[in-house]
């Protein structure tokens, strides 16, 4: 297992290398002078020359790449062109809200969706099944921002249970943190509940038709035991796959939610950077996103081997 983990981590290095190369070339291959792009339309020739020197644009391409990678590995992601703040600092300041929402969303989604899917499959064809499936269609089809505004209207404006928007760090106490994170989490988890419930139901239906489920029933064990110990564990592999890819997709969902709830997260940081053509920030965000994808994929594969003893690498 440890050997496998090590091999997979080693195999992730070239993947990240290719991403880094792409990110590096992004700026260099964009038509026109990178310095001019970076400096914007109203730059003076002196400013351009300064940027050129600071980025080493007068050096050969490969020297530039290795210099850039070298800095990258030391945690130097460059400096924002707009705010002149180091990119690493910008990201670290805004990573907490995003990570909080992403994690709480995925946890809430799993806790709600997996039981729903299991019950729907168990009660296949009944009104419970149809209700869960109907819910999942709604979850898929209603846009995130609509759900967000509806929840704000009900729970923040009408009932006044929670603040309308904003974020408090968990270091300032769990209460304020929780009441500000709960609505964004519910909003974002809607679509993941729909997705995971649907997948769990489908996987469970497959498994419930298997011979070993019949064997389990023939042993006279309780229905809960049949469902949880025998069926769910076998249905877990496709469900984990969806949860994993879903988590990676969360990154795009986070952007909308952060805007609706006015949260200072990395989703909005990315959007702002793209709109302002703040290249160092965009580069850093692409690298960060890829790193998350690669890590999640690795975790999914590790989960497979833990869930199914037949899968060995």
């Amino acid at each position: 297992m440890l050997g496998y983990l090590l091999r997979r981590i080693l195999a992730a290095i070239p993947v990240m290398g290719v991403v880094a190369l792409f990110v590096f070339l992004l700026l260099r291959l964009t038509p026109g002078d990178p310095a001019a792009i970076l400096a914007g339309d109203n730059a003076t020739p002196e400013q351009l020359e300064r940027i050129r020197t600071s980025l080493g644009l007068n050096e050969p391409l490969y020297t530039q790449f290795f210099t850039w990678i070298g800095k990258l590995l030391q945690g130097d992601l460059g400096v924002s062109l707009i705010s002149n703040v180091p990119v690493l600092k910008m990201i670290s300041q805004r990573v907490e809200p995003s990570i909080s929402i992403a994690l709480s969303t995925i946890i809430l989604a799993i806790v709600v969706a997996v039981p729903l899917g299991v019950i729907a499959a168990w009660k296949h064809g009944t009104w419970i099944d149809r209700f869960v499936m109907g819910l999942s269609v709604v979850g898929f089809s209603v846009p995130v921002f609509v759900i967000g505004y509806v929840l704000i209207q009900i729970f923040a404006i009408e009932l006044r249970w929670v603040p309308v928007q904003g974020f408090r760090s968990i270091t300032m106490g769990f209460g304020p943190f929780f009441e500000r994170i709960i609505l964004p989490t519910c909003t974002l988890s809607f679509i993941y509940v729909a997705l995971i419930a649907r997948m769990t139901r489908a996987a469970m239906l497959d498994v419930l038709g298997e011979d070993y489920v019949r064997t389990a029933r023939a042993k006279g064990i309780s229905e809960t035991g049949v469902l949880l110990r025998h069926a769910l564990r076998n249905a877990a592999v496709p469900v984990i796959t969806v949860i994993g890819t879903g988590f990676a997709l969360l990154i795009s969902g986070v952007v909308v939610t952060e805007s609706v709830f006015n949260l200072p997260g990395i989703g909005r940081l990315t959007v702002d950077a793209v709109l302002a053509r703040d290249y160092p920030v965009i580069q850093a965000m692409i690298l960060l996103t890829s790193l998350i994808y690669v890590t999640v994929n690795l975790l999914i594969d590790v989960a497979y081997t833990l869930l199914d003893p037949r899968i060995r690498y």
């Binding site: 298997e210 011979d211 070993y212 019949r214 064997t215 389990a216 110990r229 025998h230 564990r233 076998n234 869930l307 199914d308 003893p309 037949r310």
Partner: peptide, 12 residues
Amino acid sequence: FQEPMTALNPVV
């Protein structure tokens, strides 16, 4: 049952 290959739970 007929199929000993599938009648046992593969993950237990």
